[in-house]
Every structure is written in C-alpha cells, then in structure tokens.
Design a protein around this nucleic acid. Structure first.
Lengths: 130, 130
DNA sequence: TGATTATAATTACACTTGTAATCTAAGTGT
DNA sequence: ACACTTAGATTACAAGTGTAATTATAATCA
C-alpha cells in the first residue's frame, strides 16, 4: 500500500531537516539556515531542493519570484523508519544491543535514562493489560 | 589517531557480516551462506570481496587455489560507530527519542526490556560511585 | 601436454551522490 | 526599452554502488 518513503541522501536529509523546523520556507532562508552549520554553496542547496522535489519528499508553491517549500514526508515516521532499518540491518531487529553499545561507550545522557524508565513502566503496564 | 574505519556500503556490509560469523572463510562458503538470504550472483559477491579488500576491511591469505578471507575491522566497534552516527544524524546524539519511537511502534521485545533494566541499574550504580 | 575448469582480476555500465557551474527567464532600476 | 540582477532549470562531472560479464591465470583431467 501507501507510498514507500523515497530514499533520502545525507545531504538531502540536512535540507529536509531544516524544512521540518521552519516550514514553509524559501530557498534563501533554507540556505541561510543551513549555512549556520554547513559550508554549502547556494547552488548546492538548490540542487538538493530540486532532487527532493523530484523525489516527492517536498513540494513548493510559487510565491512571487521564488518558491515556498514544504515537506511532504512526515518527520516522525521518517525517523522511525530509518531507525528501524538500521536496527534491522545491524542487530537483526533487536534494539537492546544498540542500547548496550551506547551504555558501554557512556553515551547515555540523563534524559535518556529518564525516557528509558518511562518506557519500561509503560511496557509493564501494557503487559498487565493484556 | 588510529585508522578511521572505512565506509562500508550496504551490500558490502552483508558480506562482512557473514565473515564475522564464520571466519576465516573462502569465497564459495561466503557465497553459499549469503545465498541463504540474498539472491546475489557469484560474480557480485566476488566484486564485493574485492572492494572490501581494497578498503582494508578484510584481508585474505592464499590457501590453495582460493583465498581465505578474514575481517580486519572489529564487529563491535563497527556497530557502535554506525549506531552512533545514525543517532547523531537523526536525533542529535540523543538515544531516547529513538527508543521512544520503537516503543510507540511496539517494536520492543522482552529481551530489550530486560536489557534496559540492566542498563539503568548500572547507570544508577555509577552515579552513586561518583 | 593440451583442453577444461575454477579462481581471481579487470572491466563494464547505469544510477546515485556531493558539489557545483552554466543557462534561461522574469523582474527591476534607469 | 535595455541592462542588470536574481530565481529556478539544466548540465557537469568524479566517486561510489549495485550488479554483473569478460579476461587472465593456474590447476586438473584426459
């Protein structure tokens, strides 16, 4: 059924990510925002915008001279899909080894721990409900 | 310092993954094992092996006619590195939103929960130790 | 030893990606 | 009305990737 999210390259993702934060936005705004962190040439960003349009990841609507772009794919579902596909590929679908890896590298932050506790509580609640 | 793990493509990863499980192995073994899950032509797998050698991700030693391949990069550190780079890209380094995403999709398995509990316990122990 | 066969090495080829430069058309200032 | 500027559209181009086919070479069988 529905849609199959297009493949988004790393560079394209960075553009999409800006659009998820401020939307709609025109090319210049997007370029300016991106340039806070990436040294990308204006032409490069335009190319990426074009590719995203072609992939139907974003849409645009003519403003005056320029375009106003908006995301077509939803941030949350995209992130979930990408996370899941990495976990499938690296850990055959199991999240725990990923988390363990992070823990061993001491990459867990306090809010991670808080989130984990909440998740466990929810999960156990659900078990009871069944 | 050391090394910087080479970029490994998806197809190359599948080959490396087989080698992590049985090592050393010759091309035919690897091809047979891969063909349990991937419909890849023998020539394709050989190409991937060559590329992995060129990238110094694996090494080989001449057996008789054929080669015996072995991984040069360590599985655990590779997995950690990939996990971390995805989490950096998608969640700016925070693991909790990834886990929350999984939880919402009910993708958490019982062993995931057990692992989470252990991790939390360890983390809290460490806090105390400080 | 010459033909056949197995391996590995080299080459192929289209598509994607990063990273722009060039071209074109539509406003704008004079 | 004409030159300049500013968008977006088109084209470029090398490296990497998926997916092999072709070629060279070494071992083996007849």
């Amino acid at each position: 059924m529905s849609n199959s999210v297009p493949e988004i390259s790393d560079a394209e993702f960075a553009v999409l990510d800006v659009l998820w934060q401020h939307n709609p936005a025109n090319a210049n705004d997007i370029i300016a925002k991106l340039n806070e962190t990436k040294p990308w040439h204006e032409k490069t960003v335009k190319t990426l915008l074009n590719r995203l349009v072609k992939k139907q990841a974003i849409s645009y609507e003519k403003q005056q001279r320029s375009y106003l772009y908006s995301p077509l794919i939803e941030r949350d579902s995209y992130l979930v899909k990408q996370s899941k596909s990495l976990v499938d590929k690296l850990f055959r679908g199991h999240l725990s080894p990923l988390i363990t890896g992070f823990a061993q590298q001491s990459q867990l932050k306090k809010d991670d721990i808080a989130a984990l506790k909440a998740i466990i509580a929810d999960w156990e609640q659900e078990q009871k409900d069944d």
